[in-house]
Amino acid sequence: MNQVLDVLSWVLLSCGGFFILVGGIGALRMPSFYTRMHAASVTDTMASFLVIGGLILQAGWSLATVKLVAIILFLMLTSPTSSYAVANAALLSGMKPDTKFKANKGGRES
């Protein structure tokens, strides 16, 4: 039983690490602000779910589990909210989403 839990949390933690990395690379390499925003915020929620989930499997039944569940709940609420706030702030300040990709079939007008 213990080994099953270990393997399971191994898988969850590795997947979490993978999503974290993908999000980081996306936030660095994507071409415009809103695409970067997308890469960062979507993977953020997924990765924290996986990593904290992996930790919960390791924690067993203890106070640490309760705290981890609280962390995951609050992160799932606050992380999208702050993404919303960032995107809205950018939109309010007049930054328009870059729609030229579609019209130009992938080529970027500058």
């Binding site: 609050f74 609420l77 999208p80 909210t81 919303y84 809205n88």
Partner: peptide, 15 residues
């Protein structure tokens, strides 16, 4: 005027 921060914030505030 922003619905999402309002709902999430009201939920988080007591915690």
């Amino acid at each position: 005027q922003h619905l999402i921060p309002k709902v999430a914030g009201r939920f988080i505030l007591p915690f």
